[in-house]
Design a binder for these strands. Structure first.
Lengths: 214, 214
DNA sequence: GTCTATACTACGATAGAC
DNA sequence: GTCTATCGTAGTATAGAC
């Protein structure tokens, strides 16, 4: 079956919002890219804000789908975290628009005030579920003594930066690493880099900063 | 001396662009926030794109000012990298708009095509200078054997994620770490977290991923 | 250097025919 | 469900008086 108009609209809107953000995209552009007239959009989505939130919700659902099985797995925190990193990166790579939409979603929180508050809450709940599981995983590792005594929120921020930011960095990131971000080789190297950073950091050996003991 | 109109415009434009991005800000809003009529802006900046680039250039100059002395310092790579992290975070904290503008700058590359290409090149040169120094520092550490054999670009991406992304994450980051991002305590904790991640990673001990030996 | 007035385009959204 | 036509607003930018 060919894609419904609704899905076609979501596809082109996702691509455009990822590239130019909420304010940078006009509904006219979305409509014509979807092969429709401008007014036809409003039969599928009541407003631009609702369209944007529908795009975001679909993105979170895809991530949740990939990540939840890895997080449910029993096993040691170290292995589970490694698996979660792999699956998160898989999700970011599967649709290259994902990382940008996630980061833009953070910034554009206040871009549309309190309109469409219901849909917005649904999106935030999906996000909280994923983050809660990850945070709990880190907390377990700390309690078991296999992770250093770190605040899970701080670790999570570093992890998001190492993954979501990286795959959202576009041309900038590509010149830094000297390869296309989403090539199979670059993805493999990125997974390895993040896991190595988790396992041993950057330094081979040496004193801990500020006299922190293990 | 009271600030010139040009500086006042740059100040309010920086605040607005950081919050809502290039497309999300209208010149009318910038003008009235600066205490001017809409048309008066064009006597100071020839176009919106040039105003935006002027804001970005000022941001890079401030970072360069903070970071360059730390990078010039002689000493071991480990210590120089620690110092660079501290100074970079200091720069991001000094003006809380900085991190968002930097990340938005990455995303909005294609938002204004090739207009104002001259000013854009100037901004990119300033950025390349900073990044080159950091990359070289990491490379030295690898060659001296005090850092693991990592690609400098990959490490730099993790570092940017751990710093720039963190301080750009807004309300999202604040709920994750449970404190205002820019409070003195949160800044201190973030510096420590990033340096610990560099020095030992997250894991206390254990096998290296994919059998990588030191 | 700032103002008013204006030009032209695009925006999100609605009404109503088919 | 898609279309044309239209509304009202706001966008960037310019012209020209003061």
């Amino acid at each position: 079956m060919n894609p419904s108009s609704r899905e076609k609209i979501l596809d082109v809107a996702e691509a455009l919002f990822a590239r130019r953000g909420y304010s940078g995209v006009g509904l006219r552009e979305v409509a014509t890219a979807a092969g429709l007239g401008k007014s036809s959009l409003f039969h599928h989505f009541p407003s631009k804000a609702e369209l944007y939130l529908a795009v975001l919700r679909r993105v979170f659902e895809r991530i949740d789908e990939r990540l939840r099985p890895a997080l449910r797995n029993e096993g040691e925190p170290v292995m589970r975290l490694d698996a979660a990193i792999d699956k998160l990166i898989d999700a970011l790579v599967e649709h290259p628009t994902t990382a940008r939409l996630l980061l833009r979603g953070l910034f554009e929180e206040d871009e549309f005030a309190t309109e469409a508050a219901v849909s917005q809450a649904a999106v935030e709940n999906a996000l909280d579920s994923i983050l809660g599981s990850l945070q709990q995983l880190i907390q377990e590792g700390v309690e078991q003594g296999v992770f250093r005594a770190a605040a899970p929120g701080q670790v999570l921020q570093s992890l998001i930066g190492a993954t979501v930011y990286h795959f959202a960095s576009g041309e900038f990131g590509e010149t830094l690493i000297g390869a296309p971000l989403f090539s199979a080789e670059a993805v493999r190297l990125r997974k390895r880099e993040v896991k190595q950073m988790i396992h041993q950091g950057l330094a081979v050996a040496g004193p801990r900063p500020e006299g922190e003991a293990s």
